[in-house]
Write a protein that binds this DNA or RNA. Structure first.
Length: 825
RNA sequence: GCCGAUGUGGCGGAAUGGUAGACGCACUUGACUCAAAAUCAAGCGGGAAACCGUAGGGGUUCGAGUCCCCUCAUCGGCACCA
């Protein structure tokens, strides 16, 4: 590790007032020159890998980036001072559509735009005063990075986890690309907000569903409950059965979570896109069905869902019930989704809301088979379905069995015996639609050969680089489509002429494994150097909740595949995840240029200095909550740092003499030290700042007390200085060096002070005295006072006497150091 | 509709079941100043008081902002997922 002492600069005259600007620039330069933050993998101490979600190089760091990085930086610094060998890296998530849009608009190359932004934003990060190790910086658009995307892609393909198939996919007409399910929000494109259309296209997929069950297991990772729930809901596990019905077009299997209601099925419904629709449609129904299917195809998901009323049309065909042999009409309706289950359902109108609504509208039979405990028979023309549990009725040999979710397994076993059903678990999670029809991404490393078909590019030919100096068509189409020079290649199998795949990868591929790349960002023989695996896992990962499903689910999946490939022994990429909240505009709305409520951190740094902005962002709210910006509130931390400066340097301040003792000052210092340590541990950053402010107030008083100038005073300043270091690194360094810490190097390599437990505990405590649970006074007694002593002191209080007079004491409670409660009647 | 989170002064918030409102903003008053800013000092939930106060209602407990049940409000996620 580079621990070359940073040279104190004491030749400059000390400013009268704290002036952050010169100070901060000076120390940023000094730290960079000495390599203070360069991580040494052979360094002393237990490794600690802290990571914040890397930014997209949009051009500017906004206040949200500061909020997301400042507190984790302070915590990483604290860990380092405690003796951990802390890796705190940063990179850029550089592929994506904004670069292309900027390129189209400005007629430039996306790469030029991207790398210019990265350079500028790196400078902004440095002005924030973070301990980021910039020697590990990379951009996911570096060919040396994305070649490993391609390598992974081929390896996953070899393992059968990557495949191409025809199917209905989400298409964003605005961005001109397909989208993964995860990128469709309420039927709209996550990025641009355009309504998503359905298109039948041949597309690349990644088999994340193979890992659905394992992704529901969070036992190897500590994630907030909220994230676990969101992922669990997204994966959407449903336990049930597949039941096969006979139809004129062959057997049709449906999925149900309620096999106990099988006898109550009165019709089948197919999704409009279902493959059997055509074959099952009778001649008389031809016109109606064709029109319905065509209309459904034109609708977006949003339009489909907005219709209040169910729509549908009869195919003219009937299915045979596997148990009763009854003939059930087969309908087509768009409330059945082709993408879930088998794309067809058995409708049990008596016990399902949707089937009920459909049956009511089209006058289809409703047959009761579940009756609530102690309830009567369902009326002939019921008002509503019964979806709860109960006893099975009207079902022949099943009658009397308990129905409902709890008894699925028993019912399925019985149906399996009869050979009509099979236990089945279905997931809402779809395979990851993985390719995009865009330019600025990782090219898919496959070629199309007329003779050999789709072939992976040979590993030693990677990376398949994006062509330089591209021009964009006015129609926004990817420049790869018509770039003949780039398209033409040879087949890795037969050597004949072949054409490159023009799709690029979803940018979420880039972020799925970047935590491994930080271990050895310049490694050439694999995605990462296996000899650095001891740095895994990421001990603490922080970022916004907006990635709860997309990025976090994909990266968990990626790690599990890497584990199965033998690349790592980790089950999860992140040992612990925490989410920060969002800083809103002062009006309480999300910051946006159009609203004009954007707060620019560069302006704030110019006005107040980075340390003030850092401490304010930690102080403004509980970190995981966030909230509106407060342009007046920043005055607090700003004044605080001035007070801190004056505390260290101003001559003894005027004011009333204070009667603080050595013990009181040491108590303030060591109890604060204890609290700050606890609060860093539990990531309660706002209370850290509050505690440091409180200590400042006490020390300002102590300066006007006999303690000033004594060894206790010097100890107080030293410890206080060290506590400031993680939070406000610049002023802390200046104070440290001014106090002569230069011989020990930087304050940021100093050790976190040890709590003197005796000093952090008070001999006497002031505790409340209650009479029958109501506070009636307080007593100052020894911390270790006996119950007799405590009660005697309490009973001496006039107010206590007043409220106990003439009453009978029924109970006396004394919790040492906490409370006295005299219960009277 | 389903799932979840959150409700504490004018504002942001603090509080292992133990004196509610730490710390800060804003505000008020005073000192300094010709004046203002900055700084320093003091005050700051309601009420004259008894007392009342952590969204509302119940409960557990010697004691509840904190634990349990119900209701309301706000925010977030999912949403015709069979």
């Amino acid at each position: 590790m580079t621990t070359e002492p940073t040279k104190p600069n004491i030749t400059e005259p000390r400013p009268e007032r704290y002036n952050p600007h010169a100070t901060e620039q000076k120390w940023q330069d000094s730290w960079e020159k000495s390599g203070l933050y360069t991580f040494d993998e052979n360094g002393k101490g237990e490794k600690y890998y802290a990571m914040t979600m890397f930014p997209y190089p949009s051009g500017n760091l906004h206040i949200g980036h500061w909020y997301a990085n400042v507190a984790p930086d302070a915590r990483a610094r604290w860990m380092r001072m405690r003796g951990y060998n802390v890796l705190f890296p940063m990179a850029f998530d550089a592929f994506g559509l904004p670069a292309e849009n900027a390129a189209i608009k400005n007629k430039t190359d996306p790469a030029v735009w991207t790398y210019k932004n990265i350079e500028y934003m790196t400078g902004q990060f440095k002005r924030m005063g973070t301990m980021i190790d910039w020697s590990r910086k990379f951009a996911t658009s570096d060919p040396e990075y994305y070649r490993w995307n391609q390598w992974f892609f081929i390896e996953f393909w070899k393992r059968g986890l990557v495949y191409k198939k025809d199917g209905f996919v989400n298409w964003c007409p605005q961005d001109q690309t397909v989208l993964a399910n995860e990128q469709v929000v309420n039927g709209h494109c996550e990025r641009c907000g355009a309504p998503v259309e359905k298109r039948n296209l041949s597309q690349w997929y990644m088999k994340i569903t193979d890992y659905a069950d394992e992704l529901l297991d969070f036992s190897h990772t500590d994630m907030p409950e909220k994230v676990r729930l969101m992922q669990t809901n997204w994966i959407g596990k449903s336990v049930g059965a597949e039941v096969t019905f006979g139809t004129p077009a062959g057997p049709e299997t449906v999925f149900t979570t309620r096999p106990d209601t099988l006898i109550g099925a009165t019709f089948l419904v197919l999704a409009p896109e279902h493959a059997k629709v055509k074959a099952l449609t009778t001649e008389e129904q031809q016109g109606a069905v064709t029109a319905y299917v065509a209309a459904a195809g034109r609708k977006t998901d949003v339009e489909r869902q907005q219709e209040g009323e169910k729509t549908g049309v009869f195919t003219g065909s009937f299915a045979t019930h596997p148990i009763t042999g009854h003939q059930l009409p087969i309908w087509v309706a768009d409330y059945v989704l082709v993408t879930y289950g088998t794309g067809s359902i058995m409708a049990v109108p008596a016990h399902d809301e949707r089937d009920f609504a459909f049956a009511k509208k089209f006058d289809l039979p409703i047959k009761e088979v579940i009756r609530p405990e102690g309830g009567g028979a369902m009326p002939q023309d019921p008002e509503e379905p019964y979806t709860g549990e109960g006893q099975i009725v009207n079902s022949g040999e099943f009658d009397g069995l308990p129905g409902g979710k709890a008894s699925i397994a028993a019912i399925v076993a019985k149906l399996e015996e009869k050979g009509v059903a099979k236990a089945k678990t279905t997931y809402r999670l779809r395979d990851w639609l993985f390719a995009r029809q865009r330019y600025w991404g990782t090219p898919i490393p496959f070629v199309h050969c007329e003779k050999c078909g789709l072939q992976p590019v040979a590993q030693d030919q990677l990376p398949v680089k994006l062509p330089d100096h591209v021009t964009f068509e006015a129609n926004g189409q990817s420049p790869l489509k018509n770039n003949r020079e780039w398209l033409a290649t040879t087949c890795p199998n037969c050597g004949g002429p072949a054409e490159r795949d023009t799709d690029t990868m979803d940018t979420f591929v880039d972020s799925s494994w970047y935590m491994y790349r930080y271990l050895s960002p310049h490694y050439h023989d694999g995605p990462f150097d296996p000899s650095k695996a001891n740095l895994l896992p990421v001990d603490l990962y922080t970022g916004g909740i907006e990635h709860a499903i997309l990025h976090l689910l994909y990266s968990r999946f990626w790690t599990k595949v890497m584990r199965d490939m033998g690349l790592t022994d980790q089950h999860e990429p992140f040992a612990r995840l925490r989410n920060q909240g969002m800083i809103l505009g002062e009006d309480g709305e999300k910051m946006s240029k159009s609203r004009g409520n954007v707060v620019d951190p560069d302006d704030l740094v110019r006005e107040y200095g980075a340390d003030t902005v850092r401490s304010f962002l930690m102080f403004i709210a509980p970190w995981e909550l966030g909230g509106p910006w407060d342009s007046q509130g920043i005055n607090g931390p700003s004044k605080w740092l001035s007070r801190v400066w004056n505390l260290f340097f101003e001559e003894k301040v005027a004011g009333p003499e204070e009667k603080l003792t050595d013990a009181e000052v040491r108590y303030a210092v060591h109890s604060t030290l204890k609290k700050v340590g606890d609060d860093f541990g539990r990531m309660s950053f706002n209370t850290i700042i509050a505690a440091l402010m409180e200590l400042t107030n006490t020390l300002v008083k102590a300066k006007r007390s006999p303690v000033y100038g004594t060894p206790v005073w010097e100890e107080a300043l030293s410890i206080f200085n060290l506590m400031l270091a993680p939070v406000v690194p610049h002023i802390a360094e200046e104070l440290y060096q001014q106090r002569g810490g230069g011989q020990q190097g930087s304050v940021h390599t100093a050790s976190w002070p040890t709590v003197d437990e005796a000093a952090a505990t008070r001999d006497t405590v002031t505790i409340g005295v209650q009479v029958s649970g109501k506070v009636r006074g307080e007593v100052n007694i020894s911390r270790t006072a006996t119950q007799e002593e405590a009660l005697a002191a309490a009973k001496a209080l006039p107010d206590v006497q007043r409220f106990t007079e003439g009453k009978t004491v029924v109970k006396e409670i004394y919790v040492a150091g906490r409370i006295i409660n005299i219960v009277v009647r």
